[in-house]
Amino acid sequence: MLIINNLSKSYDNSNIKAVDNINLTIKPGEIFGFLGPNGAGKTTTIKMIVGLLKPDGGRISLSGIDIWENPLDAKSKISYVPDNPEVYDKLKGMEYLNFIADMYGISKELRLGKIKYYTELFKINDVLGDTIGSYSHGMKQKIVLTSALLNEPELFILDEPMVGLDPKSTYNLKEIMRKMCDEGSIVFFSTHVLEVAEKLCDRIAIINKGKIITIGTMEELRAHAKERESLENIFLELTE
């Protein structure tokens, strides 16, 4: 269970809050979509969950472990895919994957099996011997995705994961997300692609100006909106 309590963050000691007192509880086996316009606070929230930004106030816990009090325990249960796949350009794909696997302490058999499975799925298995600097943007994203999947995370957290992926890979990623949830993990992702959120997510939260303005299943969201049709209309109405 991922529990976020009264989480707040403002930048540069200004009074404008990038994230303003948000509360969320996400159960294992849930795919949770995090929506909002540019600059709404999505990435800031995600960065606080994965340990990249220290909150000004509030608590985040995963399976009862406080992320900021026991960062190591928490991080071993989290896999994170950032919005911009910046990885070590001078390492070969395989070297990078092995590096990540070493950090999570994954056995040789397990890692080789997973690497084979996911790199074949994403069709990057034939570039593992090349340096990452030679990869395209999408390929870099796929290597980050693969590295995040080596570990069996309790929380799989992705920032705009569909940007830059080809349709086939987007489809595969959605399947993977579904499968992980079936196995009891939490999948938390931010996106601009409302269609994906609508079809994939068990629950959705819309954040604007640092505050969560609505949260619930698609049906619940529809019930609250005047124009009860697509998520697009709900989104536009709420974030105006």
């Binding site: 070590y88 390492l91 070969k92 794909g93 395989m94 070297e95 092995n98 590096f99 696997a101 070493d102 950090m103 302490g105 056995s107 040789k108 890692r111 080789l112 690497i115 298995n125 034939d126 570039v127 593992l128 011997g129 090349d130």
Partner: peptide, 25 residues
């Protein structure tokens, strides 16, 4: 020669302690 490199890369997989992996990287 990509195929050869891939095979080599995969074969070279060795489990290391985190600090060794970091030093190697």
């Amino acid at each position: 020669g990509r195929e050869k490199r891939n095979i080599r890369a995969i074969k070279s997989t060795k489990v290391s302690k985190p600090y060794i992996a970091l030093a190697k990287k």
